[in-house]
Structure formats: C-alpha cells, structure tokens
C-alpha cells in the first residue's frame, strides 16, 4: 500500500468541491421550490465532505478554506461562476457533475495515490454520490430543455454561456495519471446525449482559448470569485478562532 499524496491534485479537486459547494449553498432560502432547496443543499453537503477530505490531505482544512487569497485557489473557473438563474445552476451542475463522475471513476479504478491511498478511497466513495448529482442535473436539463418555450430558451442560453468554461476541465492535473483526451471525449459524448434528448443544441462556441476561460488551475479567477470568497471568508477572518 503506497500512499503518496499528490498535493497539487488534492488541492485542485478539493477547491473544485469547496467552491461549488459554497455556490450551491447560496441557493438556501432562494430555490424555486422547497424540494430543490433541499436537493441543492444536499449536493453542497456532499461536495463539502469531499473538500474536507481532500484539503486535509494538503494541510489544515480551515486555514486552506478561509485564509487563502484568491490567487492561491486552484479550482476551475466553471465552479466559481455565479448561480445566475436556475437554468444556469443546472447547466453548471450538468457540466461539472459529468466531469467529476468520469474523473472520480477513473481515479477510483486506477488510483491517484496508489491502492489504499486516501485520494483513491475518496474517489471510490464520492463517485457513488456524484452519480446522484449527475442524475439530478440530467433530469432537470431534460425538464427545462424539453419544457416550455421560456424554459427551453433559458436553458439553452445557460448551456451556451457556460460552454467556454468547459475546456479547462480537461487540462491535465499534476500527479493524476488520467487519459485527459479520453476523459474529454467521454464527457462530450455524455453531455451531448443529454442536451440532444433535452431538445437543446450542443453549443458550438470555443471551449478553450476564449478570453478569461481556463486559468483557474493556475490561480487566475473570474471577477465574481473575489466577492464570493469575501463572503465565504468574512466570518472566519473577522473572528479568528471563534467557536460555538
């Protein structure tokens, strides 16, 4: 049993989970129906659990979450995008949960840190939870895409708006032995199939090379991320060591 922790990978995947968890948590009190409020909060909780395990591999989870500056975060830019309307949140969920499930599935099978490693164990556990996140996103994509003219239009707009952030998902993460090209083509096939069933057009815009998209793993983030962090970190920074 080897257990060398690929720190850069744990940080990247941990930040993805943490940031998306926080974004989903912002829906609390605002979701369209109570069931969705509960669903999004539960998905956020799953992601927070993953983030805690992953960030603890790197260092102190609270310090990493609450005391790092924006440039030190290694999450992809997709997960930091504002919630927008419900369709935007669902499009972000569809793109990300599909990616996360495919990635975790590979890590669980191949072992990011060897058999018995924590990252491998986490991936094997989380992939089962993420299957429900993906299912949730797919069902909503179908319902909104193949729904009313208004819901179709808004779902279509959301899928297009977030499309340019999806190329970054397949930038190789240091320390992970994954065939990223194959991961990308599997992702594309899966997402395209859902969009088509939802009577939506697969966006044809660029997925890489578009301005501002694709440097989250290097610590470059989009404008709204700073504001999100300010809110997320405010309490901890104002009251260091507070407990209740």
């Amino acid at each position: 049993m080897t257990a060398t922790v690929p720190t850069a990978a744990a940080l990247a995947l941990g930040d993805d989970a943490l940031v998306l968890s926080h974004r989903l948590g912002e829906w609390a009190g605002h979701a369209p129906v109570l069931e969705e409020e509960v669903a999004l909060a539960n998905i956020a909780l799953d992601l927070l659990g993953q983030a805690r395990v992953l960030l603890s591999l790197v260092g102190d989870e609270d310090e990493l979450a609450y005391l790092r500056e924006e440039r030190a975060f290694r999450n992809v830019q997709l997960v930091e995008q504002p919630n927008g309307d419900f369709a935007h949140t669902i499009a972000r969920q569809l793109y990300f949960s599909t990616y996360q499930r495919l990635l975790y599935g590979r890590l669980a099978a191949a072992g990011g840190d060897g058999e018995g490693g924590t990252l491998t164990g986490l991936a094997g556990k989380a992939v089962k939870e993420v299957a429900y996140h993906q299912d949730h996103a797919e069902q909503w994509t179908l319902r909104l895409g193949d729904g009313t003219a208004e819901s179709h239009e808004r779902m279509s707009r959301a899928c297009t708006a977030l499309w340019r952030f999806t190329g970054e998902l397949f930038q190789p993460v240091e320390g992970l032995d994954v065939d990223w090209r194959e991961l990308e083509s599997d992702w594309l096939a899966s997402v395209s199939a859902v969009l088509e069933r939802a009577t939506l057009t697969v966006p044809d815009g660029p997925r890489t090379g578009a301005w501002s998209a694709g440097a989250g793993r290097q610590g470059l983030h989009t404008e709204s991320f700073g504001r999100m962090l300010a809110e997320m970190q405010h309490l901890h920074r104002s009251h260091p060591g507070a407990s209740w």
Binding site: E35, V38, A39, I43, L45, D46
Partner: peptide
C-alpha cells in the same frame, strides 16, 4: 418527489 430529502 425529490432525489434528495431531509438528508443526503
């Protein structure tokens, strides 16, 4: 009714 209830 919903894939997620009182707990995950």
């Amino acid at each position: 009714l919903s894939r997620f209830s009182s707990t995950a």
